[in-house]
Every structure is written in C-alpha cells, then in structure tokens.
C-alpha cells in the first residue's frame, strides 16, 4: 500500500525499519503461537492414553475444512486493507477481530486524527491493538481463568448440566441471526435456510450416516445455488466478511 501522506524524508528508513521488525517478529511470534496452540491437543490425542485413530482426526479436520476452508483464506484477504501488514500478525493470533480489534484500531485512528491508509493510521492501529490485547488478556485471566473456574466449582450441578445440554442451540441460533443480519444477502439466506431444512429434516432422517458430512453438503450446495441465482447487479463489498 502506498501512503499519500506528506512526511519528512527520514520517514522512509524509519518506516522501513518498522516494517522489517514487525514482519520478522510478527512471523516468528505467530509461528510459535501456532505451534503452542497445537501442542496441547496433540498431547491430548497422542500421549494421554485415549485410543484415537489418526483417520478420525483427518476425517474430522476434512469435515471442518470443507465448511470453513474458504473463510480461512478470505478473512485475511478482507481484513488486510483495514489492518495493514503489521497488525495482521497481531489480529489473527489475538482473535475476535471484528468485534474488538477493528473497533479499537478505528477509534484510535479517529482520536489522533489519522487518515485511513496513512502511515500514522498504520502505527495507531498497531498501538491500539496492543492496548486492546493488554485489556483482553487481563480480563480473560481474571474473569474466565480465575472467576470462571471458581464458578464451575460452586454452581449447582443442575445448572451446569443445563448449560452443557443446551448451550449449543443458544450459541448457534444467535450466530445464525448475526450472520444473516450482517451479511445482508436475503437471496443467499433463503437458499441456505431451504437447503439446510431439506438436509436436516428430510435427507438426514432417511440417511442418518450423512450426518458426518451434512454441513459440508449444505455449504457446497448453498455456494453453488447462490452463485447460480445471483443478482446480476451484485457488486463487490469492500467491507470485511465477518459476523458482527
């Protein structure tokens, strides 16, 4: 990205230095983060005495890849213009980008009057995400790590049971509504709901073994139908693809 801001001549070397540092250390820290985040589950799968066949892992992974594989690639693409290269390495490790990091970066840019796309805006985003990360780590450690673990140990078993039994429909219902509202694509929504209803209420009762791949089937069918029946006037949205 080229900046249109007029800046002193020294800025080139200083910003090149910034780019080099953040890109090198961004990559190093992200690779370490990636490895650590995989170490826990790998230990659980292979070293804790559970008899899990490697095929089970690959089948499960393939099912999720068929569902979200496109999003893995599209999300970094759509967030790049708003975040800039340095903040990319922060955002995709800290997570909760659309609901937390992006607003944090935008508010900081507004507060110091940085023009979007300028070098100042890029620095402000990086610094703001550092601030957001600090708050986020502290609140996670206190409210989830300490308070949450304590809560689990004191709440009545009946409440814990209800939570375990019914938390999935509550999460998924809310996420579905979020996705539908924030994507603003009524055609695609109708197609997705019809395809899902057919798969869940008609096909699955007839062929229960398809449950393994039902989500992947719905995703592929929805993409194809949405593409086939797309409005000809559709234009690209520049905003990131995310659920609010």
């Amino acid at each position: 990205m080229t900046s249109t801001t007029i800046v002193p001549a020294t800025s080139n070397t200083a910003m090149t230095d910034f780019s080099r540092t953040t890109s090198r250390w961004g990559q190093i820290t992200m690779i370490i983060g990636l490895l650590i985040s995989l170490a826990g589950p790998l230990d659980l799968v292979f070293a804790s005495g559970l008899d899990i066949a490697p095929e089970q892992l690959w089948i499960a992974f393939a099912a999720v890849a068929a569902t979200f594989g496109i999003i893995w690639i599209v999300e970094p693409l759509t967030y790049f213009p708003a975040l800039g290269p340095a903040a990319m390495y922060q955002a995709f490790m800290i997570g909760n980008i659309s609901n937390k990091l992006l607003p944090a970066a935008l508010i900081a840019q507004t507060n110091i009057g940085a023009k979007p796309g300028s070098k100042r805006a890029e620095l402000a985003a990086v610094v703001a995400i550092c601030g957001a990360a600090a708050v986020h780590l502290v609140s996670l450690a206190i409210f989830v790590g300490l308070l949450g673990s304590w809560l689990i140990s004191v709440i009545p078993p009946s409440v814990l049971l209800v939570t375990r039994l019914y938390v999935l429909p509550t999460v998924l219902a809310a996420v579905l509504v979020q996705a539908v509202v924030s994507m603003k694509q009524p055609r695609t929504t109708v197609i997705a709901l019809v395809v899902s209803a057919v798969v869940v209420f008609v096909i699955l009762p007839l062929a229960p073994s398809l449950a393994m791949v039902s989500t992947a089937i719905v995703v592929l069918a929805t993409i194809m139908l949405a593409w086939f029946f797309r409005a000809k006037s559709v234009t690209a949205k520049s905003e990131p693809v995310h659920i609010e």
Partner: peptide, 27 residues
C-alpha cells in the same frame, strides 16, 4: 479475485454453515 465471487461465495459459505448447524439442533 472476481469481485462478484468475493461478494457471494464467502457469505454463502458462512450462512450455509451456520444455518445447517443451527437447524441441526432443532430435532
């Protein structure tokens, strides 16, 4: 990347995935 594809495909994948997972809770 084809702009029309970028507008339709990711949204279709997300809404499709979440509507299937959501409706699967109902039975």
């Amino acid at each position: 990347v084809n702009p029309a594809a970028m507008a339709i495909v990711p949204a279709a994948a997300l809404i499709g995935a979440f509507s299937c997972l959501g409706l699967s809770e109902l039975p």
